[in-house]
Design a protein around this nucleic acid. Structure first.
Lengths: 216, 216
DNA sequence: ACCTGAACACCGTTCAAGT
DNA sequence: ACCTGAACACCGTTCAAGT
């Protein structure tokens, strides 16, 4: 079986531009200047081809954004050395997703148009759900608890990247001085505290398995 | 003190377009067709003026988006009848924020450009933090627990609106059948479960106040 | 004071023409 | 097969001109 070089199509003439090269440039541009800066014309300038070569190779702007997100999310899966206790697994998952989103803000911008799906993301999800079952949650609770972690981490990074200050710093000065938020606006602390809170909730739910059915 | 009618400037000629009318049209357009559909030309067509009248009145596209978000978020504060127990207050806050974001998806699209600040949002935050202190959290913990709730609700709605299916449904068919996620993808359930989890975590943290300091 | 309309520099996409 | 360049229908913004 002959593996054909990606940059050499059948007629022998070297391809002017590859999808990988486009995605590299697009990732850099998007994380640096925002998704709006990723135009076919801007990419074409960088890569020394015409805008239409980009358009044809990517298959349009929607396909480009989908490929962009999909490739980055694939990073989550790479060579993760999982700990043994469920708390460690949950923490590693949350930290890894957190770092990935912080490193590539473009995902949060594009994730409404291109879903957050990567080729290996499923394995990570399975691993986390298995850990949650090991903690004592039943199948349904483990699946939804994974969802809670996902929602929390995503929401945290979205808000963290959305603005430099907390959402309450537009208070009038006299109230700002009295605000409990003025002294507590460290995002790393906010993230680790929230993660501890969720982990504590998981432990509590595991201790009393039917608690979420009882209280109505 | 004479209160001037907003639609009648000093020279007596009726104003062709008011900021409120623009924001009404923009909210409708954005929630219906997405933020990209909100162009000055589209708004001008709806309101029967020139695009430049919109531009001048709003102060540019950034100011328009900021005003849009700010006005909608102001809804959170209106006539909330708070319960007495801290769990009820936390639930009402989370549900209210959840419903607001679901009703106006434009906020999630625009919140990177225009911060999530409303004139009355601070009062709501104060109320929730006070409830969390009542539950037994110290000042710092209450402030960050409010952040956790905010992050979770925002992230949940962002993911919920971002795609109709869960993030794991692109599995190959044979694995999809075995997936724990296939049977558990109800977003209302996911939200209420997650909220219960966070509330359980808050209760656990309140029972052992220094727990987040001990484990390192 | 407020609005208009032309102009400018962008954008994604279609399509006929080149090699 | 792959790329190009012109054309088309958009976009926000600037600015001189109207009333």
């Amino acid at each position: 079986m002959v593996v054909e070089k990606a940059s050499t199509p059948k007629n022998g003439r070297p391809r002017a531009v590859t999808l990988d090269a486009i995605l590299d440039a697009a990732t850099e541009l998007a994380d640096d200047q925002g998704l709006d800066a990723v135009s076919f014309r801007a990419l074409a300038d960088r890569l020394g081809v015409s805008p239409m070569a980009i358009h044809r190779t990517t298959g349009g702007v929607d396909a480009l954004q989908h490929a962009l997100v999909s490739r980055i999310v694939g990073e989550v899966t790479r060579s993760v050395d999982w700990p043994e206790d469920w708390r460690g697994i949950v923490r590693l998952f949350a930290d890894t997703l957190h770092d990935l989103l912080m490193r590539h803000p473009v995902i949060l911008e594009a994730h409404r148009r291109a879903s957050l799906v990567g080729p290996g993301a499923d394995d990570v999800a399975y691993r986390v759900v298995a850990a949650l079952r090991g903690a004592g949650l039943d199948e349904e609770a483990a699946a939804y608890a994974y969802g809670t972690l996902h929602d929390f981490v995503t929401g945290h990074v979205a808000i963290r990247l959305g603005r430099g200050d907390l959402e309450l710093h537009h208070l009038p000065p006299e109230r700002r001085a009295a605000s409990v938020f003025a002294d507590h606006h460290d995002y790393d602390r906010r993230f680790s505290f929230g993660l501890d809170l969720v982990i504590g909730g998981i432990a509590a739910a595991a201790a009393t398995p039917a608690s979420h059915e009882e209280q109505r």
